[in-house]
Write a protein that binds this DNA or RNA. Structure first.
Lengths: 337, 337
DNA sequence: TCGGTTTACTTAAGCGGTACAGTGATACGG
DNA sequence: CCGTATCACTGTACCGCTTAAGTAAACCGA
């Protein structure tokens, strides 16, 4: 019973109103036409069941209305949440997101970035796994790029929302240090294993400053996969008294490992996460984590992206400061351990 | 310095090879041309830096290469995982997904579905919140629709991957019944509150059959929001001895509530989930849940969708059978409680 | 009153492919 | 040896919309 109206084209609306197709196009966009004409066109369009054809529009105008979103690894729950948020925010601004996932592989990320450009997205939002890759600069020539997390040196046609990772690392390590921990395992996502990844550098620098021994161990992001790594790390002797995970998803794996080994958190081992996924507050015990204001990141990156698409020349750089949420997964080191 | 090659069009490649544009188009697609021509064209295209223009192709051919994916609520982690999986699977088949989120609102879902059609996606994969809506049939006339979860009665131009929810409900309730539970709270997503939602019907039918008292309570999907609902339900007197959650995400909220109330799981209250998100196996205690073979769902829905786009007329209906994973969050009812 | 700007359009040329109706040449069956 | 397929293309009209350039009328200040 829903009325089945067939699609009309602009030309048909033009015929019906006695205007030229161009006039209709203008009227529908509310430019270069009188109020009354716009109203008349709108009515006719409604009547004929006209609906805009985004593809034709894209071809003629050179903008597709799509923004590519290239995630480092969608195995990670926090990145999932970020992607969902950005997708929504873009949609709210009349844009669609194409979400792709590099699965932690920098090469793959570059490949996908190129593919997205060939797909004629209007812009690219990316969490660069390898910020130093030359391709970013090249791509930046032909479309606006907004990076999340790290800065893209050497390019220019983009904005960036960078994380003050150093501050996050410092906060977490100082917190653990203050609780008496002097031997800390650090689980970093395998995706972050690009040489000289800033995060790793910060960990080493801070550890040295604080006089803490750190075991930096790469771990997959996939839920559960981190469990095996954690089992290994927690089985070592001497056992680290705390584990600092570079993503909450990894932390969840550590929780599973402690259960399996019969270790109490934070009694036997303290656990701290990074990113503060909503899940982390619900766990037993709630996970201490470095929080990044995901809403702000979503909002900033989309705003900068849309500004860039709309031709604002000014490059924007936004720095996110973390805040450590001290919850119940971290505690004083056990005496005698 | 990466070589900056400018984009060439088909017409330019045609000029360079001395062929007509049409021939080039054919050659690039490997049809209606000789092997040698194809090779020659490919080489010239490579040389000139030709790259396909999907938008132009879409306009001319009438297929956009995009599939709309309309999720019931991306607040739910399992649905997030499903969306990620479908996005990947489509990409692997040279299609892009546009992921949209109805946020649990059936009206919104219909609006988005219409919008996606107007965006000229080649097909629509949807988790219908209101399967009985007339719009599905209407949309089904103009593009292939694959539904996940529930069947779309009254339409025809689509396939479906339906869940045997009844079996899932039965398995979970029988499990709890066998453990002695006779008073069970059932938390269903608010998104499922369409009248006569099959799941609710099943719950009531099964409860009656088994002689179990059920309190069916709607709950939001958002992590944490379910905690408040759970606090309320578990604070009632008499307290249900078990909680059956219609999604694992809700279950996570229940866990948080039990911690807050100092209730032991499963000692004081048993908890069962639905969908089996990877996270559930990692919790303490691991969450008993109804598992749906997410890989299979991803694979089936994408396969059916692509079949439909490629014009296979045969409507496909695939039924998913659940399996109950009995983990450690459910146990015998405490004597005397 | 007049040149100049503004407004509200029209005209027409694409955007970059695809698809369909040819076309000439070669292959083939009887 | 001829009629007819088949093959490998060509020519061109679109797909539906946008945009630059052009135009006629209305407006406007001096």
């Amino acid at each position: 019973m829903t009325q089945q109206r067939k699609r009309a084209t602009i030309r048909e609306v033009a015929k019906a109103t006695g205007l030229s197709p161009a006039a209709v196009s203008y009227a529908l966009r509310g430019i270069q036409t009188s109020e009354e004409t716009q109203e008349r066109v709108r009515r006719a369009a409604e009547e004929l069941g006209y609906e805009a054809h985004p593809i034709a529009r894209a071809l003629a105008s050179g903008r597709s209305g799509m923004v590519g979103l290239l995630c480092g690894s969608l195995e990670d729950l926090w990145q999932q949440a970020l992607a969902v948020g950005i997708g929504r925010a873009l949609f709210a601004r009349d844009r669609y997101a194409i979400i792709l996932d590099a699965a932690g592989d920098p090469e793959r990320e570059l490949m996908l970035a190129r593919q997205l450009r060939d797909q004629r997205v209007d812009g690219l939002i990316v969490q660069p796994l390898d910020p130093s890759a030359a391709l970013w600069a090249e791509l930046g020539e032909s479309l606006p790029i907004v990076s999340i997390g790290d800065s893209l040196p050497g390019a220019h046609a983009y904005g960036e929302v960078v994380f003050d990772n150093r501050a996050g690392v410092t906060a977490a390590l100082e917190h653990l240090h203050a609780l008496g921990h002097r031997h800390i395992a650090v689980l970093t996502p395998t995706m972050a294993r690009t040489p000289d990844r800033p995060a790793d550098v910060h960990v080493n620098a801070e550890a040295e400053r604080l006089g803490v021994k750190v075991d930096v161990v790469p771990s997959p992001q996939a839920l559960g996969a981190a469990t095996d790594v954690a089992l290994d790390v927690l089985g070592r002797s001497p056992r680290p008294t705390a584990v600092f995970c570079f993503s909450d998803s990894i932390g969840y794996g550590v929780y599973a490992a402690t259960r399996e080994l019969g270790l109490a958190v934070p009694g036997d081992v303290s656990v701290a996460g990074f990113d503060n996924h909503p899940m982390s507050a619900l766990l037993t015990p709630p996970l201490t984590s470095v929080d990044w204001d995901i809403e702000g990141i979503v909002h900033s990156s989309v705003r900068v992206m849309i500004g860039a698409i709309d031709g604002k020349p000014r490059r924007r750089r936004i720095v996110c400061e973390p805040s450590l949420l001290e919850r119940e997964s971290t505690g004083p080191v056990r005496v005698g351990s």
